[in-house]
Design a protein around this nucleic acid. Structure first.
Lengths: 215, 215
DNA sequence: CGCTAGATTGACTGCGGTCAATATGAGTGG
DNA sequence: CCACTCATATTGACCGCAGTCAATCTAGCG
């Protein structure tokens, strides 16, 4: 494992692409019980877990370039589910193909390790938000996070980012009730921090939002 | 990457052991800014993150056999910190040694991927607890979790498990206040679910506790 | 032009936070 | 062995953020 402090080149994954398929908003990214790894080409999704009694905790937003299904393949299914929040385009891989080293360049497993480390870091930050931030800070953080994820994959257009997240999704991301989430979003909007409309969010002032998120 | 649904053999890591060192309770496992990977041989620790304003979120309990520092090495420092909760014995590794494949058997990187997957799964469950469970369920879950972690590494003795967790640690694990954590623990104890004393916990009825945790 | 999912609001409740003492207990020096 | 100290555990009083219940509103859609 060489120094991975910088993002490794993921382009080679393209060679592995086995099949492309489109799915509509609301669909599951991974068919039940099929060990399959998928890369997002277009669209946005969420990853979530369920408590036995049905409570839902959203644990990650999924943007183009993200790999889905690693945990299921390596650790057995049942842990997390994926749901598309917009129409999506996916590439599927055979899990067996992912571990062969490449003759030249970093081997695939090394790349996977790097991706998983990033995922661990994100999850760690998400947990800190849910556990430590109050409703105002949490909502502000969520909007910031969505903005930064979109920015990282070039989805900002005319200073607005995609925001296909229903208030129930935001609520389940932060462990808040739907009603309180609604009122909090309203309050922050009235403060002029951001404006959500038509599935996109426009941020007035990044620094102000960052401050509101206690970041 | 072969089928890793079953736990891979980690014994070979022993060959890598570079140095052993003991640290007291309260010490940091990883010296600041030193890229170093460490395996726990004895003792219990916690991993946590800090918000800029000092709020602390505990995100994992660290038991013998756990590897610490992967995220820092691969992703740069600053994300998570480790603190010993008991006196500990650690083995240190040179990160550079961890990626060389072994001639016979699973290569080390594959093992790392498996370990990280397990960590992701744990973190995912932790997040669901913090986000979705109320104080009663959360405390019950925490005790259950500590019990199961201890059980997995053979630390149960005379039907009690180590419990070196100050109430402030439990509070920061679940995103609750210290006072409310105290009162909730008291309530559950009075219900006869468990009993904490002398750094250990004794569980009356696993099924009852599981029920209380909404698990 | 109903239908339906998501967004809003208002009224009320209560879980969990905050503040402020007090208690307990292990460790230390005299 | 006792006084002292610091950390942790415990309690009580009070408050407010967030949850619950229940309507109503809005917009996309067949």
């Amino acid at each position: 494992m060489e120094n991975l402090s910088r993002k490794p080149d993921l382009a080679y994954l393209a060679e592995l692409s086995q099949s492309q398929r489109a799915i509509p908003a609301g669909a599951a990214l991974l068919p039940e019980s099929t060990p399959l790894i998928v890369r997002v080409e277009r669209g946005i999704a969420m990853r979530y877990t369920l408590l036995e009694d049905g409570r839902r905790q959203v644990e990650a937003l999924v943007y183009p370039g993200d790999l889905c299904g690693l945990t299921s393949v390596l650790y057995g299914p049942g842990a997390s589910y994926y749901e598309a929040l917009t129409p999506m385009m996916l590439s599927s891989f055979d899990p067996a193909d992912l571990h062969q080293p490449l003759p030249d360049g970093p081997d695939r497993t090394t790349t996977l390790v790097w991706l998983m480390t990033r995922e661990l870091t994100r999850l760690s930050g998400w947990l800190a938000s849910v556990g430590q931030r109050n409703a105002n800070e949490g909502i502000a953080w969520f909007v910031m996070h969505a903005w930064e994820r979109a920015e990282a994959v070039g989805l900002i257009e005319k200073d607005s980012a995609p925001f296909p997240f229903a208030q129930q999704v935001v609520a389940d991301s932060l462990g808040l009730s739907l009603v309180h989430t609604n009122k909090t979003i309203r309050r922050l909007r009235d403060q002029g921090l951001f404006r959500i409309a038509g599935g996109r969010v426009r941020i007035s002032s990044l620094p102000a939002l960052r401050r509101a998120a206690a970041l």
